[in-house]
């Protein structure tokens, strides 16, 4: 019965979810000359800079390095954008929360959807790089939505936790930007995992990193014509659902107090 009520409310506020996401989208590009093209240009330019730096200076040996990098980084950008925006979503919606009753989880969820929208645009950049490199993606690429879904659920979970924490402790906002930087470097995005295989410690840490699995999964499908096995999938699902469950719990416990702190 309770679950049914939750679903009914969710359905009622679905249009709000879409309207907020499309608001973010229009506002992001309003008044910029190139507009929506930035969604594609941005990852492309970043890729140019980073592949030059890491490819030429550090002599990283990966086949099709530009493709390797942009596939990994698009997934990472999706996660970091989704969680970062979710984190300040409750504070950003304070005027609304103070005045109208709206289910509060709508706000972090909306930011994750918005990040997903941006991610889909960045896939165009991935295709452009593939064309440029004359790289033909294998048939498994069609399954790309599976790791995206895993990563989305994971991001919603982390986003819920962060958005709740940030309401009570603004420090979280500053702390998380550092956490994200560290997190990015322990995710094989600009380097192949083989680079760290000699160090058991770092290798072990990376194995505990959920993003390693999502990024790896995405690359396996888009570049290496492999579908990860059942065990790999179960690890991904465990991380996603674990984060989501924890997020919902933290959020539910704290949401009634938000209004006193924003």
């Amino acid at each position: 019965m309770a679950l049914k009520n939750i679903l009914i409310t969710f359905r009622r506020y679905c249009p709000l979810l879409w309207n907020l996401a499309s608001r973010d989208f229009t506002l992001k590009y309003r008044r910029s000359f190139l507009g929506i093209a930035w969604s594609i240009l941005n990852p492309l330019l970043m890729m140019l800079v980073l592949t030059q730096v890491f490819g030429l200076l550090l002599k990283i040996q990966v086949e099709n390095f530009p493709v390797y990098y942009i596939v990994g980084s698009s997934m990472w950008t999706f996660f970091s954008e989704a969680t970062n925006l979710s984190m300040s979503s409750i504070m950003g919606a304070s005027t609304l929360i103070k005045k109208v009753y709206v289910p509060k989880y709508i706000f972090p969820l909306e930011k994750c959807l918005f990040a997903l929208e941006n991610f889909i645009f960045s896939l165009i950049a991935v295709v452009i790089v593939m064309l440029f490199q004359r790289f033909v993606p294998p048939a498994t690429a069609l399954l790309f939505f599976i790791p995206v879904l895993y990563c989305f659920v994971f991001s919603v979970g982390i986003g819920l936790i962060l958005s709740a924490l940030a309401v009570f402790f603004r420090d979280v906002v500053h702390l998380y930007s550092i956490v994200l930087t560290i997190w990015m470097y322990i995710t094989p995005i600009i380097y192949p995992i083989e680079v760290v295989q000699d160090s058991a410690l770092i290798y072990g840490i990376i194995q505990c990193n959920p993003m390693y699995y999502y990024v790896g999964y995405f690359r396996d499908l888009l570049m290496y014509n492999t579908i990860p096995d059942l065990r790999f999938n179960l690890i991904c699902i465990a991380f996603s659902l674990g984060a989501l469950a924890l997020g919902l719990l933290v959020f539910k416990k704290t949401q009634d107090k938000f209004i006193l702190h924003i």
Binding site: Y13, P15, N19, L20, L96
Partner: peptide, 13 residues
Amino acid sequence: ENIFLNGSVLGYS
């Protein structure tokens, strides 16, 4: 744009 946004805040389609 706001009319539609506000409508959805109040839960209208």
